[in-house]
Design a protein around this nucleic acid. Structure first.
Lengths: 242, 242
DNA sequence: CAATGTGAACAGTTTCACAGCT
DNA sequence: AGCTGTGAAACTGTTCACATTG
């Protein structure tokens, strides 16, 4: 029945978070002319173990060839497919401060399937401003400008405005929220919420620095943990690029 | 011997990532005059289960009182202590684009123990600019301006510059790195690296939206998962604050 | 014979249920 | 009676080792 791909059961969250990393690496290798990758090489470049790479990729179906490795281009396609990057995801960003702008401008963030359809703020100084082809409006002006339902809402407001933003986004049909504000959101259970709390990241780092915890080099969301990798002992020439 | 606190073994990473959330809630409750909190209430506000709250807090030692709950103020102090927020953590930010500025300005990010000591970039247009009391300089000018070793380096550069930034930060003594660039860093094994990859967050959301995965409402780094909480069915009055 | 795919052992977290204080 | 602290059970994810395949 099914065309082939997508093995069967659900893919564990840590695996889902690692797949985009493998994809990025595979894409880069393909770009530089390497057509096949081994789990070993992928592991070294992603900072994980080879066994983990194989278990992770096995969730995509029989993607590799024994004795040879994985086809880089096919890997990229396969991962795009399970991540849903091929679909169309209308995105609204609420809160056009520095963080909101960073998200709008970051290369690779609003790429491929993630289509910006609205920018919301309340600061009179930036209302009406045009950014990246979109005019910043208040929430009540947004519906008139939207052709489709919102799929993903990004909350880049101060904590005090986050819950309201979430309510409005849900009302606009957003089924998924990405919240950068340091607050826990109250949402109906069917809404997927993902939190990125920058101050927590710092605190986790300082905690592990304090306790000198050996496995502290863990990933935030991605679950990666670059273990003692080939490290060039501090580049010779010191011309800081930023 | 030991004054009391800090039970014994290491605190599991998921717990460490949740502690700041409990702290925020406890601080807010204390501020509004509530002196004690139950694990139940904390759980409801943090979007986790009460059992998890108790297990988590048990790592801080005997902090609660049976039959009563936890003392809010004491909770705040206890968590500050294990997170290392009381210590002094000199921070350098590399990459003063929108993201870097967002981090500099975000309330609650560079608070308490996290002390900004340097801003690095290479763009001639912003070199020499004064932001938040710090002049943006190139890496080679930084050592002359630093009184202390760097503890935490924040990488907010494009991916192409991230590895170089990491090398330089390590050379300046940074033992912990927070990397926002979409790259895996090669660092000596004793360096703690934490990754926040914004594009991965979006992809994880779309994947779970696609597969309609029931427990998709997971936290990025924090491991929180707000489960069907008391949800006010979309605020009545629609005045979007951003 | 190199490298994947995977069952089985292992490790780490969460949940449960209740003993133990206050 | 109420609520914490915690062993034990359940669950989830990782590592290991190797059978399997091209």
């Amino acid at each position: 029945m099914a065309p082939e791909r997508q093995r069967s059961g659900v893919i564990p969250e840590p695996t889902v978070a690692r797949l985009p990393i493998y994809q990025r690496i595979a894409a880069e290798l393909a770009r530089t002319g390497q057509s096949t990758v081994s789990s070993e090489q992928l592991a070294a470049l992603a900072g994980v173990t080879a066994a983990k790479v194989r278990k992770d990729l096995a969730h995509l179906g029989q993607l590799g060839t024994r004795g040879t490795g994985y086809d880089a281009a096919q890997l990229v396609r396969g991962i795009s497919e399970v991540m849903g990057v091929d679909q169309d995801w209308p995105v609204v960003i609420v809160g056009i401060g520095n963080l909101g702008r960073a998200l709008i401008n970051a290369r690779g963030f609003l790429a491929r399937g993630y289509r910006l359809v609205g920018l919301v703020d309340t600061d009179p100084r930036i209302l009406g401003t045009e950014i990246s082809g979109h005019t910043v409006v208040r929430f009540d002006e947004l519906p008139a400008r939207l052709a489709d339902k919102v799929a993903i809402g990004i909350i880049a407001t101060p904590a005090s405005a986050a819950q309201d933003a979430a309510d409005q986004l849900v009302a606009l049909g957003a089924g998924s929220l990405l919240n950068f504000a340091p607050t826990v959101l109250m949402t109906p259970p069917q809404i997927r919420v993902r939190y990125v709390d920058l101050s927590i990241e710092l605190q986790v780092l300082s905690h592990f620095a304090l306790t000198d915890h050996p496995d502290a080099g863990a990933m935030s969301s991605v679950g990666i943990q670059p273990i003692g990798l080939p490290w060039t002992p501090a580049a010779e020439e010191r011309g800081a690029r930023s």
